[in-house]
Design a protein around this nucleic acid. Structure first.
Length: 557
RNA sequence: UGGGGCGUCGCCAAGCGGUAAGGCACGAGACUUUGGAUCUCGCAUUCGGAGGUUCGAAUCCUCCCGCCCCAACCA
């Protein structure tokens, strides 16, 4: 795992003997699905624990029953496990600590450090002051301990309606740090909680629950994102007033990636307004989406390792993520042949009804992946892009009178181009060189081009989904004045192809299986729609395409 | 105009007073039965700016500039 300022801190703490072992935690709120930004935090927290011989807890920060659901905790658990991390029996919930939190709240009231406030939400806001002006103290700030205790107990007992009162910490209304201006600890909420049901009518604010939850779990290094830096003095204040175990909070910059959005609010909107098919839409940066897109967990972990951990706000190029995916898949994905846009080839010198079995390598990067047999016959499908009637310079594929090698098959020459009434090419009539079986050229001649193909007699039809960036620009927020990020949606982010031709081995793929379609890209059998009788593949990433670059250069000249 | 944080190559990111790592991207070449992969080579005389300290500064000091976060009974 990479070295960074947080691992430096951990190493120093361990070296000084400040801790015998470290304890971290990943604390999601179960109000949405996890995305790759969370993966950065998961890899960091679980990674540090693993690297330094500590442990990492999975704790759900479920303090707001109006937004949280069990569906989300299930999805989060599945995603963390899929990423390759194990929290063992350490699955905790902030709601498990509600009783302890409440006891501590009474203790602060008794110490005169918290009070029940009757101000409305709007009045609290008015009293808070502004960024440049100090706030004003609540008129209820000096209630007696006895009255505060009585009111707090009645709040808990459910005697008051939602929003009628709050419990507030008594700190400093003049602080330059707004978080210290008598922050709310409890609000009245008659809402059913996904775990505690109707047991509570008051719920702790995140700021009141988080630090204490860390303390209860004896978290040595409480790692969070930059926006909580201002909250640290408050967390430290609570812990000091309570005299409980003090976790050390360390903040790092959250992950941003180009061409996509990462905020839960925006993701929720894309899902709810139907701009994508759901939380697991393969175009989304959600863990579920990346999984369905075919991204291997190892690639995501590698990515999180490479981007580093700093306090610098940054946006990582999508290309780096894609590089990690390709690197992993290149190593492990079996090669298969599939034709996405079929053009018929007939070998006129090949006997009708005759077929041969050829041996094809499964993965040139991994000899242990072995070989498979592919059937070759008189009629074949090739990629329409692999033929050009009037080829430009540097085009190495098929053209009238030209030779090309059919991968693992024979070298063939195009003798005749058949067109329909509209003038479109509908078939190529070719001859093969019998001496080139398997693709070799015994006479030593160079055949520059090699193209993929599928035998028409046993090709399997399939649906293939081609994905591209969900947004058409690096920064989806960089839109015309008055427009929002939805106007940056890429209309071509999904292209569904049907009637694609697959070699038979692909029809047997299991959902979630990742393969390389030779010369095209990496694909995955869709985890929910793919079935033996109805193959459906999603494009994970294209292969690097040097020809496309050459074309761009030629076009630019 | 209050508080907090950050400014090193197109994008990430090392560097912690001794004279700018690495990755991605990009470009050139080699090799190739995937125009894939792989391999070589190139890519910041300069570290937001200006002063200063020092034999020596991205690293220390001063001032300035820019960007981000904070005024939910959200997290």
């Amino acid at each position: 795992m990479a070295k960074h300022f947080i691992s430096d801190i951990v190493e120093a703490d361990l070296a000084e003997g400040k801790h015998a072992r470290i304890q971290t935690r990943f604390p999601p709120e179960p109000n949405g699905y996890l995305h790759i930004g969370h993966a950065k935090s998961i890899c960091l927290n679980f990674g540090l624990a693993e690297q330094y011989g500590g442990a990492c807890n999975l704790r759900f920060d479920d303090t707001n029953p109006t937004k949280e659901e069990d569906e989300y905790v299930q999805a989060i658990k599945r995603d963390v496990a899929w990423l390759g991390f194990d929290w063992q029996e350490r699955e905790y919930y902030a709601s498990d600590y509600f009783e302890q939190l409440y006891e501590w709240a009474e203790r602060l009231v008794e110490k005169g450090k918290a009070f029940v406030c009757d101000l409305t939400a709007e009045q609290v806001r008015e009293h808070r002051g502004s960024l440049t002006e100090p706030g004003r103290e609540s008129p209820y700030r000096d209630r007696s301990v006895a009255e505060n205790l009585d009111l707090l107990r009645r709040m808990r007992a459910g005697e008051f309606p939602d929003g009628a009162r709050t419990l507030r910490a008594k700190i400093d209304m003049a602080s330059g740090n707004l978080n210290l201006r008598d922050p709310v600890m409890y609000r009245i909420l008659h809402a059913r909680h996904h775990r505690t049901g109707d047991a509570w009518s008051i719920y702790p604010m995140y700021d009141w629950a988080h630090g204490q939850s860390d303390s209860i779990e004896r978290i040595t290094h409480s790692i969070c994102t930059l926006e909580f830096e201002d909250h640290r003095p408050l967390y430290d204040w609570f812990v000091a007033e309570l005299g409980i175990f003090p976790p050390r909070q360390i903040e790092f910059a959250r992950l941003n990636i180009s061409h996509t959005v990462m905020s839960k609010r925006k993701l929720l909107r894309l899902v709810e307004e139907g701009h994508v098919s759901g939380w697991d839409d393969p175009r989304l940066p959600t863990i579920a989406g990346l999984r369905r897109r075919g991204y291997p967990p190892a690639a995501i972990r590698d990515f999180c390792d490479r981007i580093g951990v700093t306090k610098q706000e940054s946006t990582v190029e999508f290309a780096l993520l894609e590089h990690c995916v390709r690197e992993e898949l290149n190593r492990v994905a079996l090669r298969r042949m599939a034709v996405l846009d079929p053009l018929k080839v007939t070998l006129v010198d090949w006997p009708e009804g005759k077929s041969e079995e050829l041996e094809a390598v499964n993965n040139p990067e991994d000899p242990s992946a072995g070989t498979r047999t592919v059937r070759f016959g008189r009629e074949l499908w090739i990629e329409r892009d692999d033929f050009l009637e009037d080829p430009p310079k540097k085009f190495f594929r098929l053209a009238p009178g030209r030779e090309v090698r059919l991968r693992w098959g024979y070298v063939v020459r195009c003798d005749e181009v058949v067109k329909n009434a509209a003038g479109e090419v509908i078939e190529l009539r070719c001859t093969h060189d019998a001496a080139t079986r398997g693709g070799g050229t015994p006479d030593g001649r160079k055949v520059k081009g090699t193209i993929h193909w599928v035998n028409a007699a046993d090709a399997v039809d399939a649906e293939v989904r081609l994905y591209d960036h969900l947004f058409d620009r690096e920064d989806p927020e960089a839109v015309e004045a008055g427009a929002d990020f939805l106007s940056a949606l890429n209309p071509a982010s999904l292209e569904v192809r049907t009637g694609c031709k697959l070699e038979p081995a692909l029809a047997a793929a299991t959902p979630g299986e990742r393969v390389q379609f030779e010369r095209i890209g990496y694909f995955v059998a869709d985890e929910t729609d793919h079935a033996p009788g109805r193959p459906v593949f999603n494009r994970t990433a294209t292969l690097r395409d040097t020809w496309a670059r050459v074309q761009r250069q030629q076009g630019a000249e």
